[in-house]
Structure formats: structure tokens, C-alpha cells
Design a protein around this nucleic acid. Structure first.
Length: 1032
RNA sequence: GGGCGAGUAGCUCAGUUGGCUAGAGCGCCCGCCUUACAAGCGGUAGGUCCGGGGUUCGAGUCCCCGCUUGCCCA
């Protein structure tokens, strides 16, 4: 009962001839559209993945190809399994990265800087760039076969996401979780903007280490101080004080690479274990020329010099004096020390990094002499400080010193740690941090801090794959610092806060009542919220801040702007909107009252099923999604997670273990691979590479013809696909079309021959292994299983083995077809295109079923991607058939080996002489052995002419008719090699068995096995020796 | 400085409670255009499992020390 019209396919598989057409079929069928109604009605279970949105800054690279292939494998697998699947696609605006790229482009093309444009004008340029790259990225994802729900594609700055950002910001602001504070940022003094940490490049520079002396003083009261003498210190037991003239003023020597920052010093620190520390208690240092008197504090951060017990292997200890100048405004470590000791923070620089008294240097007094530095650049001031100290006898030494300094990747200027006002999310608050820690599954926790509570059903559900990444997540949260979310950029979500300096917030008397009334109403209505300092902080804000929930709320804005309020010019860190991605893409905060596109999505698909990403994202993104999802989707207690599973995949490096990068020119473009090898080949290879390790290497080669980078690793995937196509189209489809008739509608395994039962058994095992591997995110195991079952089992053994019988065995033809159709389905998530191409013609061959093999129609059987996942019952696992078939495989291998050694021409048929048991056993396999080993007969009769004996399972078999005359030398050589191998093996076995420890302690079955094996090999050796004797 | 990996054949990698003479793909070499497939088929060679200790009857696998190398965080 064959279908009337058969699908014809070309003889050779050229991916580019099929992939676009297959994509078009998927699109036309709306195959990837998710329907939340089916979930909400309870009809199906949801499976969803939120794409980690690629930056619109650049086209996708191989890491994206890997990341998205793995997601697609999961999505397609679950879709076939019958889940309602949603894979939400989208892109990220990537604030600074994108703005920078566009700035470079505009400078190159128009010779203009960003500041030559109005803000809106420049943003329009970035927007145009974004549109271009978003399209490109979308095309790439489609070319990769990603089965996203394309009708729901999002962008982190589109309207619904912007609304989510405003809502989240407003709520956090209102709840006191967003505050204004000071912090050191990476400041680029040339372009005058803050930079993210990853935009700072560390470079080794040849700098100096300067040793400066700070005179010590007593301070009776502020402004009244007197020198400390060495004799005083000696009296207090200060080691070494006696070496100095008694009446001279004592000093401490600090060592620094940046002498000019001494202008902002607010303390000198000494290690509490330093033997000099005790004598210095209560004393102070006076900064030369500046006149500032600063305390001497104790802090264990200070490195002890080697002479005082410091670590000899520590380079710092060799250079250190044991005294550290503390400049909280100009060094991140000093900032930390300043926080610990509540030191004043004195900024001595202007935004261009020149020395200035106008940006926080409040105790500046030109009469002391520091005026000589004001206005100098950092570099000139550095030299001037050295000169002035030298002139006063306070410069102890200057040594050359190579050290690492952060530079702007844009201007290449040295980064200045610069104090500025920024917005922060108080992620250290229990409502955020604890919620993230409690989210972790308990068996992945290593500390007892904030464990899941029994009372919260959403606690303890977050699991990392592989396990070890849980530790990264845990430690990050335990050492968390508040999150700086403001960026001095134009491209991004503008911070919805308006402010005015207190002393400018003047409301005319007659308007005061109305104004106060207005904002009380607005607060009650949730339209505005006033900000304060961080909870528990004593500091006062210098401005009045109001967050306006809706930036289009003209009434409110007009009112505040009337009193001088202006909107914050900064934008939010990109990760703020990314943190909302699992919610915003599904329509939050208006999930159920906007258009159909979002209706029910949040309820049906949040939490999503898994997040698939790279490990550097655990801290930047995963943490923040967990905190925001739990906080914003919560009632009184912590709410649900954005996803229960986090899968972290490997990073692809080049063949030398280097990161792939543009500057090294070692990147591989996925589109080039798709062009040269086909998408399926790329996907297969990427899956196979995805083991549980951190990094995988991909040797990169430049194609001499195209000049494009490629890698030989993809050949395996391409060859695999070719094999599949040749087997399916070239053999199975052709043969089963030509030979039909009499197929049973249902085939019972018991009625089948050994080779069929073996094949079904192998298929059952592979299916089981694949299901298990997928549940554990073991993509490499999945790919390996596919390779083994298709190539090794189905093509190399099964199809070769059934050749002589298939034409006359209708039931066997059913097995051939059913197994192929099952394999196509198993393969589909990894290699979707070629399997979709083959699915129709293979399905058209279906004439019967095998009991235990189910091939469900799924949602829509006209496409493989919406067909059901195959079920292969474990009852098909047949140990007996496997044992018999494997024995035959070993025999065929042994015969092939003899053939090769005797150089028997491939086509020459030879004769196997065996004992009756063996012959009987082989005859149960049909003609399989003869076909695979190239035999004309298997017989119990003795060879007539010359024959070559060989050993198999301890039994001597013979092969005859190898050649017109057997070459004795070849045979002797073969036997001698065999003897050598046997001697080695027998020696090892004897040694093991003569060890009483082994026979007494090892499991009995292992000892027994070893004995049997020894006996068998000894028998083989005897036979080989005998044969060698006969040869003479 | 803290954390996490990796080191097994020329290359890329498997090796799951410790147990056959350590495997695969590619590459090398040999033989084959055998009627699905030369992007293929059959076969050979190739390994002190980074080094050193330890536990064990038995270690690529577990423990300790070291070397090399990569990534993340500070």
C-alpha cells in the first residue's frame, strides 16, 4: 500500500539547496508559535526558554552559534515530546558597547563627535544602526535553524521592555532599594565618561615607585600641632628610632606609584602586626605643602615589608615600607580602607584629571604651598611633587617599577579612579540577595547562609548544570556589593528621576499649599516617589530627588519642572533591562491588558524552563534575573524564579587555547560554516563538543580559496549528514520503493531474525540514552549516541547485513523503514534541516509498524518538527540477540583481519571452515556473516587446498581459498605477531592470578572471568605455536 | 590575591560508584571507484594517561605535593 506520488530527492545532498526551503515550510506552517491558552487550560505542559539576547553591537559569532544551537536542541526535543514550547527571541541594546561602535563609525564616516549632535539626533543614528544589526542577527539565527517564536521577537528598548524598566525602577525606588551614592568609577579623562570594567584594558607600564617622607606630629586640637621627635619614638619602643638624631622630627615613609595623589591623602595606614604600630598610636602625619594633618590608622590590608616579617615571595613585600598612604578619592583599595575607617574623601582632580581644588578639596589653603600643583596635569604634578619633596629632604628614593595600569579602550588614556555620584540598587538588602541565595537548591549549597525556608514554595528550586557553577553563584552573593546602575551615556533607558538642588527648590508662598497637595495625591496614586539616602546612612542628599513613574505624565513633569527639577541625564546599566528580560518579554507589568501578543504569556511560560548561557554571565545576569523576578513577581514573600535550571556551556577557544577575537583574527563566522559545511553539520559538531568541561578548542584554518576561517572539526558533522542522506535516500528509499509487497501491518519482534532484533535492541538503548542525556543537558552524549546508532549500527552493520535478505523478507523491510524513521526523529533536534528533508519520503515508505516502536503524529505530522518524539520500548532490548550479533561482529572483524594480512582482494570470496556448533550459530543469522566477511560459504567440511587457521573465542577456525597460493612468510609474520600479543596478555593475567591479594579480595566473578580468559588465551597460544611449527 | 577547570595517540576529545591488553573522530600509512555513500569502505601503525608521593589485591579514575595551561571574580 504505497502512496501514489513519491517525493523525489536529488542524489547528492547540498545543504544550501534545501535549508532555505525547509525554513520557509516551517514559517508557513507557523510551527514555532506558542499558544499560552493550551497551557492555561491544562491541555499541555509548558516548556519555554528566554533567549539570552545577543548585543545589537555586532553579528553573531561561533559562541552564539553554540549557545543557540543548544537551546534549539532543547526546544525541538520538548516540542516533539508534546510540550507547548516557547522560545522567545530578542536582542539587547548593549548601552556603552553599541554607543561606542556608532561613535567610531560616525567619526570615521562624518568626522563628527557625539557631542556635535543633539542627544535625540545621535540616538536616532544609534537606532538606525540597531535596526541594521537586529535584522542581521535575526537572519543569522534563522539560518542556524533556531525555532524561535519569531512573531514575538523583542528588543530591550522597545516599548513593552521600557515600561517594565520604568515599573521596576519605580517600585525599587519607592521601596528604598534604589539610592543615590558616591563611588569610584573608571573615569576616562579624555572622553570624560565613566567606563564599565570590561572596557578597561590593563597595560604594563614602566612607572616609578616613589618613597615619600611624611613628618609626624602631635595634635592637641585641630590647628594646633607640634613635631614628634625620634627620641620620643625610641622611648615608646619604636624599632630603629635610635638610628636617627634624637631631636629631629620623626617621619614615616610611604611608597607609591602615584605621588600626585598625596594631595588627597586622608590617612596613613600601618599593619596592626607591624612592630612599629604600637609606638605610633595616637600620632599623626602632616602632609608637606598641603598642611593637612592626618591620622595613622591600623589596617591589615597593609603589606608588611620583608624586613619586618613580610612574605619573601610577595613582590609587594619587597618594595613596601609598611606604611600606606590612603587616598580614598583616587584609589579603589584606599576607598575601601576609607569606608572601613570612616575617613574623609578628598578629590583633588578636575574631570580632565588635572589637579584642582574645586571638586571636593575643601581644606585647600594656598598659603601652605600646595597651590604650586593646582592646574597641572597628572603627569606634570607627579614630577612636581617629587621635586618639591626632594627640595625639602623628604624624598627618600625613586625606583623604576613596572606595573599594570588600566587604560581606556577608547582613548587609551590611563583610567582615573574618580569619585562621582551614581545610582545604586541595594542588592545587598535581604529582599534581593537573600532571595537569590534561598533560591538555590540545598544540595548545591556549601554554606549555611540564608538557606531555603520550608514555608516558601519557590525556595530551593534553582539548580546549576554542571554543579560546580552553583558555587560561583553562591560566592558572588555572599560577597555582593551594591550595584551601580547609572551610566553617563545617551543610549539606553533614561533614568526616570528628576531632581533639583535643595537651595534652588523655591516655591512661592502662594503656590506652596497646592504643590504639597498635588504631590501627596500623586504619591498616593503611585505616580511619583521621593528618594532618600540609603537606609541606615547618615549622609544627607544635596538634592531633592523624585522618581516619576511614567515619563509621559505631562501633568506631573510640568509641575516639578516649574520648580526647577530636571531629569537625570544618565541612562541605566544595560543589565538593568536584561534583568527584567524573562518578565518584560512576556508583557510584564501589563501581561494581561495589552494586545493579544502578550495575553497569558506570563502566566503560561514564566518561570521558563532553563537558561542556557556562558559562565561569565552568572554574576552579571543570572543573579539579577533571579533577584528581580523573585522580588517583582512576589506578594508578601519572595516570588517565583525566572527559571529552575541554569545550564552553563563551554567556551570555544581556538586551537592554541586562545579566546576567539577580532583582533587576533581567529574567529570563525557561523555563516561561513553554514556555507561551507551546512547548518546541520555545524550544529552536530557543536553539540558533540559540548562536554561538561569549561573550555573546548577548535583548531582554526584559513581556507586558501575563500580566505575565510574554518575548522576541520566541522568535517565530521558534514560527513555524518552525507552518510545519513546516502543511506536514507540512496539506499533505503530506493530499495524499499523497488521492493514492496506482503508487508505485515504489525511486526512482532519474536518473529524477526537476529539482526533485526539486534537493531531494534540497539535503537531502544540509544533512545533511552538520549532521553537521559537530554534531561541532564549532556549534549555530547546525545550526539555520540546518534553517531553510533546511525553510522556504526544502522549503516555499517545493519544495512550491509540485510542486503541479501531484505528483498524477500517483508517484515524486515518494515523494520528497515521503522528504524530509519525513528532515527530521523532522534536526530531532528540536532540536525533539523536534513531530517526534515528526508522525513516526508521516508514516511511515505511506511507500510507497517513494529510492536514496541511508536511514532506519534504529534501536533502536525506533515512536518517532522511538529511530529511526536519516538517511543522505543525497553522490551525491545534483547540481550540474546545482542550477544549473538556481537559474536558475529567479532568473527567478521577477525576474518577481515586475516584477509587484510594476506592481501586477499576485496572481491575475492573465501571459505570459512568451522565446527558444527559455530556453523549452526551463524546460520541463524541468515546470510549476514557471508555478506560482511566476503565468504562464499560457511562449512563444516575440511578445506581442500591450502588454508589459514585462526583463533576465535579459543576455537580454531580455518579460511581457505584466500589466494591461489598462501604465502608462508606472510603467515609466519602474522602468527608471530599474534604470539607476541598473546604472551604479553597471558603474562599479565598470570601475574594477576598469582597475587593472593587479588584472588582473596577481588569480587569472585572477576576472578573467574580472569581464569577463563587465561585458559582461552593459553589454548590460542598452543594453536599458534603448533601452526608455526607446521610452517617450519 | 580568591574561585573554577584542563593536561590521555600527531590534532580534537571520550573514558559515569577504582576492575578486559585505555577508546572515538580526524590525520598518517596500506589496500579498495565492492551496484547507498571516495564527504566512502576495509585494515595497520601510533599512548611512561603532565611529574612525584600515597591509599588499594588493583589507580587514567581516589588523596596529597608540584609543574604547565585556561577562564571567572577582586
Amino acid at each position: 500500500m504505497s502512496t501514489p506520488t513519491k517525493t523525489e530527492l536529488p542524489a547528492k545532498y547540498v545543504p544550501a539547496e534545501h535549508e532555505p526551503a525547509v525554513s520557509a515550510r516551517w514559517d508557513a506552517a507557523g510551527a514555532f508559535k506558542a499558544d499560552p491558552a493550551r497551557v492555561l487550560s491544562g491541555e499541555t505542559k509548558p516548556y519555554s526558554i528566554i533567549i539570552p539576547p545577543p548585543n545589537v553591537t555586532a553579528a553573531l559569532h561561533l559562541g552564539h552559534a553554540l549557545n543557540n544551537t543548544l537551546q534549539d536542541v532543547l526546544i525541538r526535543y520538548h516540542r516533539m515530546k508534546g510540550f507547548e514550547t516557547l522560545w522567545m527571541p530578542g536582542t539587547d541594546h548593549a548601552g556603552i558597547a553599541t554607543q561606542t561602535v556608532v561613535e567610531k563609525r560616525v567619526l570615521a564616516e562624518e568626522g563628527k563627535k557625539r557631542t556635535d549632535f543633539e542627544r535625540d539626533e545621535f540616538i536616532a543614528k544609534i537606532q538606525a544602526f540597531k535596526d541594521e544589526y537586529e535584522e542581521r542577527i535575526t537572519d543569522q539565527l534563522k539560518a542556524m535553524g533556531c525555532s524561535c517564536d519569531w512573531g514575538r521577537q523583542r528588543f530591550t528598548m522597545d516599548e513593552i521592555c521600557a515600561k517594565a524598566v520604568r515599573e521596576a525602577f519605580f517600585r525599587l525606588f519607592k521601596d528604598g532599594l534604589i539610592y543615590r551614592g558616591k563611588r569610584l568609577v573608571n573615569w576616562d579623562p579624555v572622553t570624560q565618561t565613566a567606563l564599565a570594567d570590561d572596557e578597561v584594558e590593563n597595560e604594563e607600564i614602566e612607572g616609578i615607585f616613589a618613597y615619600l617622607r611624611y613628618p609626624l606630629v602631635h595634635e592637641a586640637k585641630p590647628g594646633d600641632h607640634s613635631p614628634v621627635t625620634w627620641s620620643e619614638l625610641a622611648a615608646k619602643g619604636y624599632p630603629g628610632a635610635e638610628k636617627f638624631p634624637e631631636d629631629d622630627q620623626a617621619f614615616v615613609t610611604v611608597a607609591t606609584t602615584r605621588p600626585e595623589t598625596y594631595l588627597g591623602d586622608t590617612a596613613v595606614a600601618v599593619n596592626p602586626t607591624d612592630p612599629r604600630a604600637g609606638a605610633l598610636k595616637g600620632l599623626r602625619a602632616e602632609l608637606p605643602l598641603v598642611g593637612r594633618v592626618i591620622p595613622i590608622i591600623e589596617d591589615s590590608y597593609v603589606v608588611l615589608p620583608v624586613a619586618l616579617g613580610g612574605d619573601e615571595n610577595d613582590a609587594k613585600a619587597k618594595m613596601a615600607t609598611g606604611f600606606l598612604k590612603v587616598t580614598p578619592a583616587h584609589d579603589p583599595n584606599d576607598w575601601e580602607i576609607g569606608q572601613r575607617h570612616e575617613l574623609p574623601v578628598i578629590n583633588v582632580m578636575a574631570p580632565d584629571a588635572s589637579i584642582s581644588a574645586d571638586h571636593g578639596w575643601d581644606d585647600y589653603d594656598p598659603h601652605h604651598g600646595a597651590h604650586v600643583f593646582v592646574g597641572l596635569s597628572r603627569e606634570n604634578a607627579r614630577q612636581k611633587v617629587l621635586d618639591e619633596f626632594k627640595a625639602r629632604g623628604l624624598l627618600e628614593a625613586v625606583k623604576p617599577h613596572v606595573h599594570s595600569v588600566g587604560h581606556s579602550y577608547r582613548s587609551h588614556a590611563a583610567i582615573e579612579p574618580y569619585l562621582s555620584d551614581q545610582w545604586y540598587v541595594k542588592v545587598t538588602d535581604d529582599r534581593l540577595r537573600a532571595a537569590a541565595l534561598r533560591a538555590m537548591t540545598e544540595d548545591q549549597r556549601t554554606s549555611q547562609l540564608m538557606l531555603p525556608r520550608e514555608s516558601n514554595e519557590h525556595d530551593g528550586k534553582l539548580r546549576f548544570y554542571p554543579d560546580r557553577y552553583a558555587k560561583t553563584f553562591e560566592q558572588w552573593h555572599e560577597n555582593l556589593r551594591d550595584w551601580c546602575i547609572s551610566r553617563q551615556l545617551w543610549w539606553g533607558h533614561r533614568i526616570p528621576v528628576w531632581s533639583v538642588a535643595w537651595d534652588e527648590y523655591n516655591i512661592p508662598k502662594e503656590q506652596e499649599d497646592q504643590h504639597v497637595l498635588n504631590y501627596e495625591v500623586w504619591i498616593a496614586e503611585g505616580r511619583i516617589s521621593f528618594g532618600g539616602p540609603p537606609t541606615g546612612s547618615e549622609s544627607k542628599l544635596d538634592r531633592c530627588y523624585v522618581c516619576i513613574g511614567d515619563p509621559k505624565d505631562a501633568e506631573v513633569i510640568a509641575e516639578f519642572e516649574k520648580y526647577g527639577f530636571t531629569q537625570d541625564p544618565d541612562v541605566l546599566d544595560t543589565w538593568f533591562s536584561s534583568a527584567l528580560w524573562p518578565m518584560s518579554t512576556m508583557g510584564w507589568p501589563d501581561a494581561d491588558k495589552t494586545d493579544d501578543q502578550f495575553d497569558g504569556l506570563l502566566g503560561a511560560f514564566n518561570p521558563s524552563s532553563v537558561l542556557t548561557t556562558a559562565r561569565e554571565i552568572i554574576t552579571l545576569w543570572v543573579s539579577r534575573m533571579v533577584m528581580f523576578n523573585r522580588y517583582l513577581l512576589a506578594g508578601e514573600t519572595d516570588g517565583q524564579l525566572p527559571f529552575p535550571d541554569v545550564f552553563i556551556h563551554a567556551m570555544i577557544q581556538d586551537g592554541e587555547g586562545r579566546k576567539m577575537s577580532k583582533s587576533l583574527g581567529n574567529g570563525v563566522d557561523p555563516l561561513d560554516i553554514i556555507e561551507s559545511h551546512g547548518t546541520d553539520a555545524m550544529r552536530y559538531t557543536l553539540c558533540e563538543m559540548t562536554t561538561q568541561t569549561q573550555d573546548v578548542r577548535m583548531p582554526v584554518e584559513k581556507d586558501p580559496e575563500t580566505g575565510k576561517n574554518t575548522s576541520p572539526k566541522f568535517d565530521k558533522g558534514r560527513n555524518f549528514c552525507t552518510k545519513l542522506y546516502n543511506a536514507a535516500n540512496g539506499f533505503v528509499i530506493r530499495m524499499l520503493s523497488e521492493h514492496t509487497g506482503g508487508e505485515p501491518a504489525s511486526v512482532a519482534p519474536g518473529d524477526l531474525s537476529v539482526i533485526d532484533r539486534w537493531m531494534l535492541s540497539r535503537l531502544a538503548r540509544a533512545t533511552k540514552a538520549i532521553d537521559e542525556a537530554t534531561g541532564q543537558y549532556q549534549f555530547s552524549v546525545y550526539a555520540q549516541q546518534l553517531f553510533d546508532v546511525l553510522r556504526a549500527d544502522y549503516c555499517d552493520w545493519y544495512l550491509e547485513g540485510v542486503k541479501p535478505t531484505m528483498k524477500t523478507a517483508p517484515a524486515q523491510r518494515v523494520v528497515i523503514q521503522q528504524v530509519l524513521e525513528t532515527i530521523l526523529r532522534l536526530l531532528h533536534p540536532v540536525t533539523p534541516f536534513i531530517t526534515e528533508v528526508l522525513a516526508k519520503p521516508v514516511r511515505e515508505l511506511r507500510v507497517g509498524a513494529v510492536e514496541g516502536v511508536t511514532l506519534p503524529d504529534g501536533r502536525d505530522p506533515s512536518l517532522l518538527c511538529t511530529s511526536g518524539w519516538p517511543g522505543v520500548s525497553e522490551t525491545l532490548i534483547d540481550e540474546d540477540a545482542e550477544a549473538r550479533f556481537e559474536r558475529m561482529q567479532n568473527l567478521v572483524d577477525a576474518i577481515r583481519k586475516v584477509r587484510a594480512q594476506h592481501k586477499v582482494p576485496p572481491r575475492r570470496q573465501i571459505t570459512l571452515h568451522a565446527d558444527p556448533d559455530m556453523v549452526a550459530s551463524l546460520s541463524g543469522l541468515g546470510q549476514v556473516t557471508e555478506t560482511l566477511a566476503g565468504l562464499d560459504a560457511i562449512t563444516t567440511s575440511a578445506p581442500e587446498g591450502e588454508a589459514v587457521p585462526f583463533d576465535f573465542d579459543g576455537v580454531e577456525l580455518k579460511l581457505s581459498n584466500l589466494a591461489d597460493e598462501v604465502d608462508a612468510d606472510t603467515e609466519r609474520e602474522r602468527l608471530q605477531q599474534q604470539l607476541k600479543d598473546l604472551n604479553g596478555s597471558i603474562g599479565a593475567l598470570e601475574k594477576r592470578l598469582s597475587n593472593p591479594g587479588y584472588t582473596d579480595k577481588a569480587p569472585a566473578h572477576l576472578v573467574e572471568e580472569t581464569r577463563k580468559k587465561l585458559e582461552q588465551q593459553q589454548a590460542e597460544r598452543e594453536a599458534v605455536n603448533k601452526r608455526l611449527g607446521e610452517l617450519g
